[in-house]
Write a protein that binds this DNA or RNA. Sequence first.
DNA 1: GTCTATATATTGATAGAC
DNA 2: GTCTATCAATATATAGAC
Lengths: 196, 196
Amino acid sequence: MARGPSDKKERLVRAAVERFHRDGLNGPSIADIARDADVPVGNVFYHFRARDDLVRAVVDHWVERMRSSMGSVLPEGTPEQRLKAFLDAAAKRADVYAAVGCPLVALARDLRQSGQPLAPLAAAVIRPQLDWIGSMLSAMGVRKTEAVRAARTMLATLQGSFQMAFALGDPNVIRPTVEGLKTQIAALARPAATNR
Amino acid sequence: MARGPSDKKERLVRAAVERFHRDGLNGPSIADIARDADVPVGNVFYHFRARDDLVRAVVDHWVERMRSSMGSVLPEGTPEQRLKAFLDAAAKRADVYAAVGCPLVALARDLRQSGQPLAPLAAAVIRPQLDWIGSMLSAMGVRKTEAVRAARTMLATLQGSFQMAFALGDPNVIRPTVEGLKTQIAALARPAATNR
DNA sequence: GTCTATATATTGATAGAC
DNA sequence: GTCTATCAATATATAGAC
């Protein structure tokens, strides 16, 4: 039964990811997270010097998770197909967003509000999707600056529908928003075809 | 200098509105708010039985404030003009949203996350704008069920741009989103004209 | 390396003096 | 009606036994 380097640090991060998602960044205490991870309370500070370090680990976890997640969205498809697949996947999870909200939007807000030194991490949290959407649009032939701008407004719109669905407790806000975004993508794809 | 019924309760609500906005619903302690309001700490519980009651008062304040605020958006204009004026006003405050976020979005999320018995208030917080946008669309001749649906997605989109602007610390996300919404409104207005 | 026991500050809330 | 003194619970964090 001998374990080498214990997996407690990893368990703590996993438990923190879940609780921060459910109750916000300032919701759970160290004791709450330790209990969820089945790790002695005082022991948390052996693995993380302070609460902020645990938060940083959670942010790293999300960034890594989203980056790999975006990479696996319909990897064989065209950029336009991949974007639409990404949006459809979001629509399929509408019930979850209505029930517990979007983890990334919430995390970004909490990070910006908790002031220095955590605030700068807020942008990093949404960067993976932002970059991915931007690269898909670029690959569709959209001009670089326009792709960056469009990626921002599109992701903002999608996240706004999550937010609204959560506030109202009603998943039905998400589907029409997704349909609208798919129309926008189709419109962006058309003029690009004339370039070739 | 004799004051009748003291204004301390009102001062506490005003201080709480500001701090909840800046630091979230669970950020400030009762002591923080009391200090801001220049009211003795222990005295807070004379005016509000518990922290939740103060939160409720803050929610009431926002609902009342937004309801009167929506009523005064270009009162003389046509519904279409009023909607566009509302969006332009939001765009004009882009810097504020990028710096401190949107108070209502944040409040709604915190309320839903703080569980019973406060969670149901989340919907009430965004109701004033939702209803106002819906009534403007109805007045433009949009079918009732469609107006409700469009109001939700439009407000969600706008709020999403606030959220994104806050996360990135960049106000420039808001203007293009607002322009997109104005185009949508113009499109909704056109078919309605054929009905008369 | 791991965990227990504890220190210290702050939380929401109460009792009761003025 | 107003404010002071204080409570019990919980927060993060540390020191040191195992």
